[in-house]
């Protein structure tokens, strides 16, 4: 059993089902990436794992515990952290305050974690007193990831972290994500830039219309001619 498993998830936002018997899993310290065409249900699958979407069939298991019925807030308390794709910072609060808010539930000393985040994203340390809303897109994403890391999560979920940032910033962000994974945190990520994402992925999921289409290691998917043809543009 993996550290996190979303097993046979079926459900949607009240209307017709969007996910159909979809299974996603991540191991400790591993990077798992969900890719697929537009409207394939990638973000929906991640939201189902996080509990922002009700699934009527299937279950979500974290570290051996069934968390299917927990609310997103309760899942945060269990060690899951989620970085939404948009509006993922508090724009009128300083970088430091953003990080503090990330650690809102913690009652212990957060300085150490904050130093770790600053080590990971040195630019944030320079801009700690600046409002998050005034930062560039890439820096804002760093704040968003940093905020999520402040809970000391065991699983970090990122919804298209590189949407709207330049290729250079994207590479930099991916490097940081690898660094995070190396500290033992599991990473589940939805990505539009499938090729680059699969490059760093231990495990890749290709979803089509809410179903698992291909599941393999990142490398194997990159080398699979059918995946390349259909989803990676040759």
């Amino acid at each position: 059993m993996s550290f996190l498993t979303g097993e046979g998830m079926t459900g949607g936002y009240g209307g017709a089902d969007i996910l159909h018997d979809c299974t996603i899993s991540v191991d400790k310290g591993e990077i798992a990436v969900i890719v697929g065409p537009n409207g394939a249900g990638k973000s929906t699958a991640m939201k189902a794992v996080f509990g922002m979407l009700q699934i009527h069939t299937g279950r979500v298991v974290l570290d051996g515990e069934d968390i299917t019925s927990l609310s997103p807030q309760d899942r945060v308390a269990k060690g899951m952290a989620f970085v939404p794709q948009t509006s993922n910072v508090f724009p009128s609060m300083s970088v430091e305050e953003n990080l503090e808010m990330g650690a809102f539930l913690r009652r212990d000393d957060i300085q150490e974690t904050m130093d770790q985040v600053f080590d990971l994203f040195p630019i944030l340390k320079d801009k700690r007193a600046q409002n998050a809303g005034e930062l560039s897109g890439g820096q804002r994403q760093q704040v968003a990831v940093g905020r999520a890391l402040m809970t000391k999560p065991s699983l970090l979920m990122l919804d298209e972290p590189t949407a709207g940032v330049s290729p250079i910033v994207m590479d930099e962000l991916f490097d940081r994500i690898i660094e995070v994974a190396q500290t033992g945190i599991s990473i589940l990520m939805v990505e539009q830039n499938a090729r680059q994402a699969l490059n760093i992925a231990d495990k890749g999921y290709v979803l089509v219309q809410g179903r698992n289409r291909f599941t393999d290691t990142g490398k194997a998917l990159m080398n699979d001619p059918e995946v390349r043809r259909s989803f990676l543009g040759g």
Partner: peptide, 19 residues
């Protein structure tokens, strides 16, 4: 006080942060 500002700034994210 900070949690109030956070809530005013971005309600969803505030909820995600456990406020």
């Amino acid at each position: 006080g900070k949690s109030m500002r956070a809530y005013s700034d971005n309600e969803d994210l505030a909820l995600l942060s456990g406020i």
